[in-house]
Design a protein around this nucleic acid. Sequence first.
RNA 1: GCGCCCGUAGCUCAGUUGGAUAGAGCAACGGAUUUCUAAUCCGUAGGUCGCAGGUUCGAGUCCUGCCGGGCGCGCCA
Length: 666
Amino acid sequence: MKTVLEVLEERIGAAMAAVVGANECAAIVRPTADARFGDYQANGVMAMAKQLKTNPRKLAEQVVERLDVADLCEPPEIAGPGFINLRLKPDYVTVQLLRINADDSERLGIEPTTKPRNTVVDFSSPNIAKEMHVGHLRSTIIGDAICRITEFLGHPVIRQNHIGDWGTQFGRVILGLWHMCMAEKHGEPLYYRTELDELRRVAGSNQDLRTLCTRIRDRHEDDWSKDREGEQRFAPFLEGLNDRDVEGLWEQFLCVYQYVNALEDALAGMGLTVRTINQGQEEAIPYESLSRRITVMLQRQDRQELDAWQFIRRLTLEHCGGIYRKLGVQLIDADVCGESFYNDKLPAIVGDLQASGLAVESDGATCVFPEGFKTKEGQPLPFIIRKSDGAYLYATTDLAALRYRVNELKADRIVYVTDARQIQHFQMLFKVAETAGWDRRDGEKVELAHVTFGSVLGEDGRPLKTRSGENIKLKDLLDEAVERAKSVVEEKNPDLPPERKAEIARAVGIGAVKYADYSNNRTSDYVFSFDKMLAMEGNTAPYMQYAYARIKSIERKAESKGVDIAKELHGIAALDLSEPTELDLGKHLARYAEAIESAVADYRPNYLTAYLYELAQKFSAFYTNCPVLDAPAAKRPTRLLLCDLTARTIRHGLSELLGITVVDQM
RNA sequence: GCGCCCGUAGCUCAGUUGGAUAGAGCAACGGAUUUCUAAUCCGUAGGUCGCAGGUUCGAGUCCUGCCGGGCGCGCCA
């Protein structure tokens, strides 16, 4: 089903083509900027007149003569330098509304595409062994919205959570688990907790820090040798982990991981050494390099390494899954396809690029020099795919992922949702892929899109952080939003049962955070403000949810007023849109498909929120002016239908496409 | 130094291949309530779209220069 806009575009384009004898013409139909000019305006005639060096108004007259839109619009008017203004007939609006109403598929009359494209969306992508923080918010929810909308339009969507589960943090993670094990062995108090505090406290004093680190090193060395000399503490500990309570372990692990990182940072340049075993030989190595050594050691003892790694990976995903569920984001474990997945595919990436002559050695590293990129000195800028020490980088992994998605996942389109700072990386990635011919399958070009977004800022205009300068945990942020929403519900509707209040608080709090993000232009930074996003006035989630709740309230009241909504709407065949607010609302309802189309075309959720907000405003105006249940019997079915379609549209847009929960009562 | 993004009302932001007199919300001011939830609606006021040129019938939008801010720039992701 074409949107009204598409129909007009087609008809006017055809009329223009007929007038000038061309094959096709762009009518450039847009919603009018001002209601006085009608509902739609065609701007294409003026551009064409310029091309033909003819009078635009005259050309417009000829086009209008050829134009037949009498089934949709009042007679077209020519205005200004050559605009064609179009005003929809109320009868046509009626036809559209009845058509939408007749669709019992919950799709509001919007048909799925006839040209489905396999769409891979790469989003969220947190790191293993770390808590999700506010920096992950935008990728996660913008990506989710893109998936939901694309899926709704009928395209198969493959979600890819490209988690950071491979790399240098490897050794530290395992060392963290090792400390957890030893702390349990030593009993309460868990030393890493108290020592982490100590490390922070004495950070300013080299002398105290040295004393502390030496003490830690001594115990560490002792545990280390006992463990290796037959007591066998760590291996059984690892084996036992899987049977234990996940929630508690995650908290412990986060702490011990911080401890390992803080300790390693403190050790830098201190000159402390630790005794360890290498190939059966005892040797002393710098204490701060122990985690790197462990990576190597454990890589030789496959089993233990993998167990530890798998366990932390599972713990992290458990945590992320909790955040996704809280956020209403449709990402599950099956969508996880992280860096480790591509590990064994990396040598081939480098090899193939070398074989084709694209990759060359430069200062010991293996690089591709894509066309059009320069360093600050004006030299060709390398896309490094292998470091001089032989390690691979995210450039390599991204190439491997791209190739996998094209060839194995059969992507027709790959969408990457990351912050704008990575723009150059993706430009280079796409260029390299294109040059290597990896962005094609069966000769068909795969569309590569980098969807960027700006930063979330604090009230001070700096990237949002805690007072002490740390990243704000997503969990804390969401909990606070729900907490604040709860106190609003408490204030506005104290008589609701507690579980009802909690449900509303969750919907409003989480919805507010998401909606605030969606309603901003994704390319700009935005200032995070609980007060603004939870306000009941303005373009906010609570305002939208309230509009919905009011409609549901009418439905609840109907019976007590002796109105049978189902009966009045059954087989409804005519509407009376004589009140201005009715017609205005009706026209807007008929344009939902256009809003979705514009939002998806450039991956901009704010076009959708803008539509929904206007819808809620128009509904509120209608609601204020037009009684529904108390309306004269002749007017009532129309108004009931307007209410029902508004509720369905808000629910669909908010809940299905943006993943924001609606509630029947607020 | 080079590259990318941004600069729109007091504040936060929209502005869809260049279209009509640049729009919302918040804050301010004035009105509307025997309520289908006022968590609302209606109205008033508020802008040389950073500055200066240029292209065009028409520029917030495109081009050039400048000013101001953010981000990125060979072995992190």
